[in-house]
Amino acid sequence: MDSEKRKEKLRAMFSKVVGPLGYKFSPDTELVDFLLEQEVNIEKEKGSPFCPCQGLTGEREHDMKLVCPCIPFHREHYDAMKRCWCGLYVHKDIEDPDSLMQISLQEFLESKK
């Protein structure tokens, strides 16, 4: 399958996964295209479309939680940011994705205390 086709296939599959979770693809289409392209390349190299903005450790339990869409495994953290870490997905009500900041996990956990 060529890259463009795979990208569209990922888009179609992932859209069905994130919808019920209250997320959608970011309105920043340039960012979405770039990230999906990275995922297609990562999938070719490593076998799965891992998050382009989080590092793999080689431990299956850790790495499988970074396969896109990784929202289910980081739900509270992402809900607090209204976006996922790489920004591919945002909450359904978001129209201006640039207004959303990356909040580190540590900061998020401290804010909960």
Binding site: C53, Q54, G55, Q102, S104, L105, Q106
Partner: peptide, 11 residues
């Protein structure tokens, strides 16, 4: 380094 800062490998 990342894990020591609780970042869980986020870049």
């Amino acid at each position: 380094d990342c894990l020591a800062h609780g970042s869980e490998m986020s870049f």
